[in-house]
Simulated scan of single mutants.
Amino acid sequence: MSMDREQYCPNCEEDKEFYRAASTTLHLGEKVKWHCPDCDYGFVTIDGINTGATA
Rank of each mutant, 00 (worst) to 15 (best):
M1K: 07
S2I: 10
S2R: 08
S2P: 12
M3R: 08
M3G: 14
M3V: 04
M3Y: 14
E6F: 07
E6L: 11
E6Y: 08
Q7W: 13
Q7I: 06
Q7P: 05
Q7F: 06
Y8A: 03
Y8S: 04
Y8R: 02
Y8I: 05
Y8F: 15
C9A: 07
C9K: 01
P10Q: 03
P10L: 02
N11A: 10
N11P: 03
N11V: 12
C12Q: 11
C12G: 06
E13R: 15
E13K: 13
E14T: 10
E14F: 09
E14C: 12
D15F: 11
D15P: 05
K16I: 15
K16N: 08
K16H: 06
E17F: 12
F18N: 02
F18D: 03
F18C: 00
Y19N: 05
Y19I: 05
Y19R: 04
R20Y: 08
R20L: 15
R20I: 03
R20F: 11
R20W: 11
A21R: 09
A21W: 13
A21G: 14
A22K: 01
S23P: 00
S23W: 15
T24N: 04
T24M: 13
T24E: 15
T25L: 08
T25K: 10
H27E: 15
H27G: 09
H27S: 15
E30R: 08
K31P: 03
V32G: 00
K33P: 02
W34E: 00
W34V: 02
H35C: 14
H35D: 13
C36N: 01
C36L: 10
P37I: 10
D38G: 02
C39M: 14
C39V: 10
D40Q: 03
Y41P: 02
Y41M: 04
G42M: 05
G42I: 01
F43S: 00
F43A: 00
V44K: 00
V44G: 01
V44Q: 01
V44E: 08
T45Y: 10
T45P: 07
I46H: 03
I46A: 01
D47S: 03
I49L: 07
I49S: 06
I49C: 06
I49Y: 06
N50G: 02
N50R: 01
T51F: 09
T51S: 10
A53S: 05
A53N: 04
T54M: 08
T54H: 09
A55D: 09
A55V: 10
A55F: 07
